[in-house]
Design a protein around this nucleic acid. Structure first.
Lengths: 231, 231
DNA sequence: ATAATAGTGTCTCTCAGACACTATCGA
DNA sequence: TCGATAGTGTCTGAGAGACACTATTAT
C-alpha cells in the first residue's frame, strides 16, 4: 500500500518540498434515542475500502467546498444522510498509519444529536442501528462509537445535552425519560425536575400539552451551553 | 496565496485525482505552575510565517517519522523543547482556510502538563510566560491557550489532573495549593483533603517530608484516569 | 367521578464547609 | 517548650432522594 498519495509544494514555503501529508477525513456519529434505545446512524459503504461493509458516514475534507472541518461534517450530514441544522460537536481526532488501508490518515470525528421526529427524507442506504446491538463496522468505527457514547453520558450528567434528542419543545418528563435512557439508571422524577430547572438552561414556552394534566413545554434557552452543575 | 500545495494521487483509490488535502500541523500547549502562577511554554518562531513572533511550539505531521499525531506532539516536546514523558492529552482540532497564511490548514492541538521541577535542559529559545500576562501570539494561538486553560480548569474540578503539575510524589497541601491556583478560588483545606482522598486516585508512598509535622507523600495510583466525582 | 399525568411540599439523611482541636516534627 | 505544618473530630446548614400530596386535563 503506497503512502505516496500527497506530494508537497515546490514553492519556498513550508511544508518542505515533497513532504507528504496525511489523508484527512471527517466521520460523523449521528445519535438519536428511538423507542427508548440509543441508536446510531450507519450506512453501507459504496466504495473501497471496506466496500459493502457497514460504517459511519464520512468524507474527505474538500478544501474547495469546505471553509473548515465542521463544514465537512455538515456536508456529510446533508449529502450522505439528508439532514441539516442539528446539534454538532467535535469528539476527537484519531490518526495512524494503519487505521485506513489507503494510507497514513487522520479522521476528525464529530457527533451529532437528533430527535427521532426529525428523521424523515433520509437517504435510502442509511439506517439507525441500536447501540447495544451494533455489528462489526469498518475501520475503527466501533471504537469511535464507544467513545462518543461515553462523551454523551459524561455531558448528560452535568448539562441539558440530552435535550438535543428531543424536538425543540419538550416536557420535563420527556427529558427525564431520555436522561434515564442515556445514563442507564433511574433518577427520582422530582429530583430531576428540581435539578434540571436549577441549571437555568430551560425556558417555558407557555404552551402546554398532555394526556392527563397538560405539561409545560420547555425549550433550551440561549445560554444552555454554559455547563456548570451536576444532575 | 496559493492553496495548491498538495496534489492528490493519480491511482484509482480515493481521494480523487488531484484532490487537494489540507496542511496538517500539531501544536502543543505546555503548561506548568511556577511561582504560584500558571505559565505557558512559548518560543520565538525562526521561520515564516510570523517569523520572529512568539507562538506555541508546533510542527507539520511527518508521516515517515510519526506513527500517529500523538507521536508528532511528542516529537515537538522532544525536539523543540527538550522534554519527554509528560502528561499529554488532545484538546481539539481547529481548521480553516485563513488561519494559516500557508493555506487551508488543520491543527491538532495537544496540551501537556509538567512540574516546574522537571524543567531543565530546555532549549534556549524556549521560555515560560505567565498565562495572565500573555502577549499577542502568532496564528490563533492566544485563543488556543484560552481553550486549554478552560479545559484544565474543568478537569481539575473533578479529578486529580492538577497532580501533573507536581513531581511524582507530592503532599496533599501541595496539591491543594495547585488546585487553588488553577481554579482561582479558595477551598477549605480539610474539605479538599476529604474529597481528593475519596476519589481514590492517590496512594500513600510511605515517605514523609516537611518543616513542621512531616506530611505523607502521595502519588497517583494506576486508576487515576477514571474521573468520576466532583471536588 | 375517575383515570392519568403534571407538579408541589416536606421529611430525613447525607455530605459539604467551617473551624476548633490534636499530632509530630525541628529548633 | 514553642513554632510550624499535618491531619482529625464534629457542628451546622444546604441540598439530595423519597414519597405523599395537590392540580388539571379528558372521558
Amino acid at each position: 500500500m503506497s503512502l505516496d498519495f500527497f506530494i508537497g509544494s515546490t514553492t519556498g514555503a513550508t511544508p518542505k518540498k515533497h513532504m507528504k501529508m496525511p489523508i484527512v477525513t471527517v466521520d460523523v456519529v449521528l445519535v438519536t434515542v428511538d423507542n427508548d434505545k440509543i441508536s446510531i446512524g450507519i450506512l453501507e459503504r459504496e466504495k473501497e475500502p471496506f466496500k459493502n461493509q457497514l460504517a459511519l458516514p464520512g468524507m474527505f475534507v474538500n478544501i474547495e467546498k469546505d471553509k473548515n472541518i465542521e463544514d465537512t461534517a455538515k456536508r456529510i450530514l446533508n449529502e450522505k444522510i439528508g439532514i441539516n441544522n442539528v446539534f454538532l460537536e467535535q469528539l476527537e481526532t484519531i490518526s495512524g498509519e494503519i487505521r485506513d488501508p489507503r494510507g497514513w490518515s487522520i479522521s476528525v470525528v464529530y457527533y451529532a444529536l437528533i430527535s427521532k421526529n426529525d428523521i424523515n427524507n433520509i437517504k435510502d442506504n442509511f439506517k439507525f442501528i441500536p447501540y447495544k446491538s451494533m455489528p462489526m463496522l469498518a475501520f475503527d468505527h466501533n471504537n469511535i462509537i464507544e467513545k462518543t457514547i461515553n462523551r454523551i453520558r459524561s455531558k448528560t450528567s452535568y448539562s441539558t445535552l440530552a435535550a438535543h434528542f428531543l424536538p425543540e419543545k419538550f416536557t420535563i418528563a420527556e427529558l427525564h425519560n431520555v436522561y434515564q435512557i442515556i445514563m442507564n439508571e433511574k433518577l427520582d422524577a422530582q429530583s430531576f425536575r428540581r435539578k434540571v430547572l436549577a441549571l437555568n438552561f430551560l425556558k417555558e414556552s407557555g404552551i402546554r400539552r398532555g394526556n392527563g394534566r397538560p405539561a409545560q413545554l420547555y425549550q433550551l434557552s440561549h445560554n444552555y451551553k454554559t455547563f456548570t452543575k451536576t444532575l
